[in-house]
Design a protein around this nucleic acid. Structure first.
Lengths: 153, 153
DNA sequence: ATTGCTGCAAAACGTTTGCACCTAT
DNA sequence: ATAGGTGCAAACGTTTTGCAGCAAT
């Protein structure tokens, strides 16, 4: 179940930044890649704790930030003041629609968005780092809605 | 300096929702409309405290939420897990570019974005509530950058 | 009179930090 | 050897909550 390719990328990134290569960091990577969907740092910490893992909360927070830097993970904000992470690994670029009733998160890709951030940056004299585009909406068919377990937990 | 029109809208909204019309709520409204730029709930509370006001933190948080509901304010998230508010009153719709170096916030309007959220919702079978579009970027001209006082404070 | 709102303080929550120990280099 | 990472717990900053009193209806 281990992901050799991602480990390789992470190892290289750590080496280049003079960050130490520790087993704890790779343990966080492994759990993060296995996580289905979006997760908060604390969710991951609790999951790891409830498995056998002995990593500390500080290490989880720290490592997730490193994994964002080397682009193995993305950091998202869905408007509830919690940072969520998701694996970028082998996934295409996408954005999110969040149901304001039940918290369901739908991913979508819209080609119209591809060039907009870049061109706005150019216009304003900035260099693009990243962008976030979230749509907040309601299921038209409410039957669908409430039954989803809220991702906020 | 009081804004009759906004007060009118708020009063009507409160009445319709069977919320009580209290002086504290209008005091929060007044301070919120006068605030230049984006502010956190606690920023506003501290400002009000350091003026003569006697409103409580709970009331400020509660009232800001009401003001978002009646669309006098917008609630924003710039990726640092703090909710920021800004007046909608007499302002056109816009989005934000945030400098990842210094925290400067630049507002922009791009006509290409006008129909995208609506059409994505339609495609996915949702009813649009709102959207957020943030660009994170760096000043090309770094001289410009660092000198801005960071809005995060 | 009745509810809901208020102020206050304390709790909750996600996140960061300080410190002594440990470990990759 | 030494910088840097780790675990732990405590601190932090923002937001929410519980409760007794108060005020709008």
């Amino acid at each position: 179940m281990k992901n050799e390719k991602a480990e390789e990328i992470f190892r290289k990134f750590l080496k280049e930044g003079n960050n130490r290569i520790t087993p704890e960091r790779f343990e966080v990577l492994e759990y993060a890649l296995e996580y289905e969907g979006h997760f908060g740092a604390d969710d991951l910490f609790i999951l790891m704790k409830s498995s056998k893992s002995r990593v500390s909360r500080a290490t989880v927070y720290n490592t997730l930030e490193l994994l964002v830097q080397c682009e193995l993970l993305s950091k998202r904000n869905f408007g509830d003041n919690i940072s969520r992470y998701e694996s970028n690994f082998k996934r295409q670029q996408h954005d999110h629609l969040i149901c304001v009733e039940c918290g369901e998160i739908v991913e979508f890709t819209d080609t119209r968005l591809l060039n907009i951030p870049e061109s706005i940056c150019k216009d304003l004299g900035f260099e693009l780092d990243s962008y976030s585009f979230n749509i907040f909406a309601r299921c038209k068919n409410r039957k669908n809605c409430k039954k989803h377990s809220n991702e906020k937990k």
